[in-house]
Design a protein around this nucleic acid. Structure first.
Lengths: 146, 146
DNA sequence: TTGACAAATGCAATCTAGTTGCATATAATA
DNA sequence: TATTATATGCAACTAGATTGCATTTGTCAA
C-alpha cells in the first residue's frame, strides 16, 4: 500500500463549522495552514490572485470573519492599524515581533497561565482570553547591527 | 498661605517636549490626565466639543501622533480596529477588558519582567516593549449574570 | 444524476479611521 | 509688538473594512 504525503483537504473542517467548501475558503484555509506568521487580508488576496482563484475583497473579509466567528481562526492586532489572522487550532503561543525586519516569531513556552490565576484571584476578573506580544529585535537583525 | 488644589497646567510638559502649548493640546493633556482608561480619538473629539475647544479631526490626529512620537503618550490596540491612547508617564501596567460592559481596568503588579528575561535568553530576541491584555468579565458583570 | 434551495459571491456603494497638502492663524521669542 | 517657526482648518484622499442586492454555486435529498 502506497503511503503518500497528500496536501490536506480542509473541506472536513469547513463542513464541521457548518460552512460550504468553496474554492476561496479552501485556499484560504490552506494558506493559513502553511503560513508561519499571522497574515493580513492583503496577503490572502495576493495569494488567491497568484493561485488564480478569483475572490473579491468583500468575500475575503466575509470569509475570514466567518472563520473567526466559527472559531476556526483568531484575529490579532500588532499595532499596525489592521487585523491579522491565524488558525486557532495552533497551540497556545505568543508573538515576538521584530521592529527591524517585521518577522513574527512564535513563542510557546510562556508562563502566562500563572499570571492569569493570580489576576483572577486578586482582581476578581474572569479571564476568557489574553493577548501578549513582545516587540524588539530578532537575532538576525541584532547581528546585522553589530 | 492658602493651599488650593489647582488643576495642573500641562504647558510645562508640552514645552518640555518642544511643543507649543495650544488650547487643543492643553485640553487633550488634561483629558488624558483625568481619564482612567485609554481613550480613542472620538472620545477626545467629543470632549473638545463639550468644552468648546474647536479642533478639526485632522488636528486631533496630528496632536495625538505628535504626543506619541515625543513619548508623552502610548498607543495601544484592544482588537477594536482603532487606536487608544494613554499617558506614558503612567506606571507600567496592563489592561483587563470586560467584554460585557467594555470597562478597561488597569493591573499593575504583573510579573511580565520575569517572562521577558526568560524569552531574551531562550530566543535571543532583544525585547524593547510588550503589550499584554486580558479579556473577560469584570466583577460587576459577573454578579449581574448570576 | 439532477433539481431545489440555502448559502456564498461579485459588484458597487458606503463607512470609519487615519493622513496629507496647502493656505491661514497663532504661540513663543527677541 | 513684530517676527517666525509651528500649529491649525479645511478639504481631499487613502486604507481597511462593511453592506445591500442580484446572481451564482455547493450541498443534499429525491
Amino acid at each position: 500500500m502506497v503511503q503518500a504525503r497528500i496536501q490536506h483537504d480542509c473541506s472536513t473542517e469547513l463542513h464541521g463549522a457548518d460552512l460550504k467548501a468553496t474554492p476561496a475558503r479552501l485556499a484560504i484555509m490552506q494558506l493559513l495552514e502553511k503560513t508561519e506568521q499571522p497574515i493580513d487580508v492583503a496577503t490572502i488576496t495576493d495569494y488567491l490572485k497568484a493561485t488564480n482563484i478569483k475572490a473579491d475583497q468583500a468575500t475575503v473579509f466575509r470569509i475570514i470573519n466567518m472563520f473567526t466567528d466559527r472559531g476556526l481562526t483568531k484575529q490579532i492586532q500588532l499595532n499596525e492599524g489592521k487585523f491579522r489572522y491565524e488558525l486557532s487550532s495552533k497551540p497556545e503561543h505568543h508573538h515576538l515581533i521584530c521592529q527591524q525586519c517585521g518577522t513574527i516569531e512564535d513563542i510557546s513556552d510562556c508562563a502566562v497561565g500563572d499570571l492569569e490565576k493570580d489576576i483572577e484571584k486578586k482582581k476578581d476578573f474572569k479571564i476568557a482570553s489574553h493577548s501578549l506580544e513582545f516587540y524588539g529585535m530578532c537575532r538576525n537583525c541584532q547581528q546585522k547591527i553589530v
